[in-house]
């Protein structure tokens, strides 16, 4: 890591990594062909579990939406680090000399973009299938942005932590889900206010989501380099 590295170059490097991951995704279409349909089937299964005729679905739609996103996050994170395991990709990325923080920002951005796309489709699915009204679109969008950044940051951090480990597929959910529980809680409450309730009530939750996103993005930029070196 060199001292004269400017903020601009970190963002440029991050954009390179994000571009690489998204290009791989555009060609392999795993998120589109597997993770997205997975999210949709989860939304459908909730309707089987909670009788759609009694209005339960509409009431609990925000929570169901975020559970579906959380589950999809686990898959997206696993996928983001699986693409580094083939053809010596991880060593290749290490040898580029890119800053650890930049790689973190790049991979997190790629995950965030995929999650955002997933959320749009799932959101439409929830509105159509569960019959949800949207009172405050601004609050909903801001909540989704803050929550997605938080999920992508923690996901990337734990993704690299578990990368290269034996048992990483089973370990990742146990590590990640308790940490992102506050995101689930905050995003669900904010969505409740933004969809059926009073959008103005969502601000404290938006605050906690933003704090979460900032804290874990900062930790990720600082710690990713060391973890990336250790990942076998």
């Amino acid at each position: 890591m060199t001292g004269e590295r400017t903020e601009v170059s970190i963002w440029r490097e991050a954009a390179l990594v994000a571009g690489k991951d998204l290009r791989i995704e555009a060609r392999a279409r795993v998120a589109l062909g597997q993770i997205l349909p997975f999210g949709l089937i989860v939304i459908l299964l909730f309707a089987f579990a909670l009788d759609p005729d009694r209005g339960v679905l509409t009431r609990v739609a925000p929570g169901l939406f975020w559970i579906a996103v959380l589950l999809a996050t686990l898959l997206a994170v696993g996928r983001a680090f699986a693409i580094e395991t083939h053809h010596g990709a991880r060593d290749g990325l290490r040898m580029t000399g890119l800053d650890g923080g930049a790689i973190f920002l790049g991979k997190a951005t790629a995950i965030a973009v995929q999650l955002a796309a997933l959320e749009v489709v799932l959101g439409v699915g929830v509105i159509v299938l569960y019959g949800v009204d949207v009172n405050g679109i601004g609050v909903v969008v801001l909540t989704a942005v803050a929550a997605t950044v938080g999920l992508a940051a923690t996901g990337t951090l734990y993704g690299v932590l578990a990368a290269g480990l034996r048992l990483r597929e089973t370990l990742l959910p146990l590590l990640l889900l308790p940490v992102i529980a506050p995101v689930m809680l905050g995003a669900t409450r904010a969505f409740e206010d933004g969809l059926g309730g009073v959008p103005g009530d969502a601000w404290p939750w938006l605050g906690i989501l933003t704090v979460f996103a900032v804290i874990y993005t900062t930790i990720g930029v600082m710690a990713f380099g060391a973890l990336w070196e250790e990942a076998a």
């Binding site: 308790p178 940490v179 506050p182 905050g186 906690i208 804290i215 710690a223 973890l227």
Partner: peptide, 16 residues
């Protein structure tokens, strides 16, 4: 690092 990441989450969990 994993211990510290988890520990940072404690106050966030607490307040939320």
């Amino acid at each position: 690092i994993a211990a510290l990441i988890a520990f940072v989450d404690v106050p966030i969990v607490h307040f939320s």
